[in-house]
């Protein structure tokens, strides 16, 4: 059962590695707003769609 002497450190290495990434991400403010991303996901628009909408409107500059 000595394999555990190798498996265990690596499992911990990976698990605590992700904990490190978690702490780095908290610092980078990834968890400040957990509501808007779910909506923002729905609205990726291509340039054509924006342009199509852009020139469709008659009274703005772009």
């Amino acid at each position: 059962m000595n394999i555990v002497f190798i498996l265990l450190p690596f499992a911990l290495l990976l698990g605590l590695g992700f904990l490190g990434i978690f702490i780095w991400m908290v610092g980078a403010g990834q968890f400040d707003d957990l509501e808007t991303p779910a909506y923002r996901l729905l609205f990726e628009e291509t340039s054509e769609e924006t342009k199509k909408k852009g020139n469709a409107s008659d009274d703005n500059g772009t």
Partner: peptide, 15 residues
């Protein structure tokens, strides 16, 4: 949800 869509389109309308 549409408010998010509308507001984040402002860059296309205000150079």
């Amino acid at each position: 949800a549409a408010c998010v869509w509308l507001i984040e389109k402002v860059p296309d309308f205000v150079p």
